[in-house]
């Protein structure tokens, strides 16, 4: 891409990434959540991939790392879900009973949100990565 696109990408990429993390972490307080935050995180990586080419994008987040993070999200989600399911009879012991609209007002919601963010973000990025690699391979 051109120099303008590269410079703008370099300036905005961190803001987009941090906004995705913010949307994920405040999912239990306001509109947002793991799904939307994960997609925004994936969009920030796709931004790098589109502006700087697939070599730079692959250096930032390789395929192995993508698979590891995706599986980590799935395992964490499943572990939290199974733990919650076994403890379902005394649910109120696992909420922190802090004030409303504080970030630590809930114990399991942020964990679920972060796990979903990992799965969705890396999964969608992996799909885009495979597509980019596939089209690049076809051109050769």
């Amino acid at each position: 891409m051109t120099l303008i696109v590269k410079t703008i990408t370099r300036l905005t990429i961190g803001i987009i990434f941090i906004y995705g993390i913010y949307i994920t972490l405040q999912g239990h307080l306001g509109p947002g959540g793991g799904f939307a935050g994960g997609v925004i995180v994936a969009l920030s990586f796709i931004h790098i991939l589109l502006a700087f080419g697939k070599d730079v994008g692959m250096r930032k987040l390789t395929q192995k790392k993508v698979l590891f993070l995706m599986s980590l999200g799935a395992v964490v989600f499943l572990a939290a879900a199974v733990f919650n399911f076994t403890m379902r009879h005394n649910q109120e012991a696992y909420t922190l009973h802090a004030e409303k609209f504080r970030i630590f007002s809930s114990l399991f919601m942020p964990i679920y949100d972060i796990a979903v963010c990992f799965m969705i973000g890396t999964g969608l990025y992996a799909i885009f990565l495979a597509l980019a690699l596939f089209t690049a391979e076809n051109k050769e």
Binding site: S106, M109, Y112
Partner: peptide, 25 residues
Amino acid sequence: SLTGAANIVTAVALKFRGLDSLGET
């Protein structure tokens, strides 16, 4: 009181209908 999440939509999506969310992810 059951989830500690002020956003009821997230509470429903991830707790009361948690199996649904697991499926879609």
